[in-house]
Simulated scan of single mutants.
Amino acid sequence: MKVSFVIPALNEEGVVGKTIRSIPVKEIEEAGYTVEIIVVNNNSTDNTAQEASDAGATVFLEEKRGYGNAYLRGFKEATGDIIIMGDADGTYPLEQSMDFINYLVEDNCDFVIGSRFDGTIEDGAMPALHQYIGNPLLTKMLNILFHSDYSDTHCGMRAFTREALDKMDLKAPGMEFAIEMVIEASEKGLHIKEVPIHYKKRGGGEAKLSSFDDGWRHVKYMLTRKFGKN
């Protein structure tokens, strides 16, 4: 079986290489898997692409910027039976990837997502507005509207099988891609598992989130999806 890591990167020079090297390739290979690492360069203006390539990743250019656009390109290029996704900024513990793989293979899960709120959040890793208000409220709203039971709908470290990916109808181009995926996983009846993780401060690069704009985009997406455009 092959494991594909898909990492979107927009101006992450100085950290993307460290993130790639944090992937426990040797541990995964010793468990009997082959590994590929894909970085989607989302039209960076710095040395992100070269740094990722030097660290051992296969780099694809996606000129259309957007969180969803980058991941959709990465998933298209990935050839693995298992796909693991995570940000390029060093915030997610990719060294914990074997736990995610084991849940998929040994426990027959389809979709595994990290939970920062069931795990630990390093001081300064998440703005207080996001940690205590934004993320909990958006998670609660999604759970109510879509009858799900997530503790952290916006955690970006996730893993799923190729079959699960094929079942999910993913097409959102921007940050709303994060909740589109968890809604799809729930609505398609996938066997979902949440795993506590340790969320870390950014290792470098530039923050991409806009608290109000991205929060409203997520609310609008959920309401439109639930109740229709009218």
Results as ranks from 00 to 15, higher is better:
G189Q: 06
S115F: 05
Y103N: 01
G203Y: 12
V112M: 03
E13P: 02
L137R: 10
D107S: 15
V15A: 08
D123W: 06
G189A: 03
Y33A: 07
A57K: 02
M222G: 09
G124F: 13
F160D: 01
E187R: 11
P196Q: 14
L94A: 05
M98C: 05
T48I: 09
F146M: 08
A159S: 12
D99N: 11
L142I: 08
K167F: 00
D149K: 09
P93D: 01
F227T: 06
I192L: 03
Y221Q: 09
F177D: 01
E206N: 12
L145Y: 12
N42A: 02
V59L: 10
K201D: 02
E163S: 08
V25A: 11
A164H: 01
E163M: 04
K167V: 01
T224L: 08
I7A: 08
I28D: 04
L190E: 04
I133G: 03
N102Q: 15
A52C: 10
I101K: 06
L145R: 11
S151R: 14
Q50M: 06
N69I: 01
E12S: 14
F111E: 00
E106T: 14
G14H: 05
M85D: 01
V59Y: 07
A172V: 00
M222R: 14
Y221T: 10
A88N: 11
E176G: 01
D118C: 05
L223K: 08
A70G: 03
E122F: 14
G134K: 03
L142N: 05
T19F: 07
G156W: 00
I82Y: 12
S53F: 10
A185C: 09
A49G: 01
L165D: 03
P93N: 03
V219A: 12
S115N: 09
N47W: 00
L170N: 02
E122T: 14
A55Q: 03
Q131Y: 07
D169Q: 07
A52E: 05
R73K: 13
T161M: 02
A78S: 15
N230K: 13
M175A: 09
S186D: 08
T34R: 11
S22R: 15
H191V: 13
L72E: 00
L165W: 06
Q50H: 05
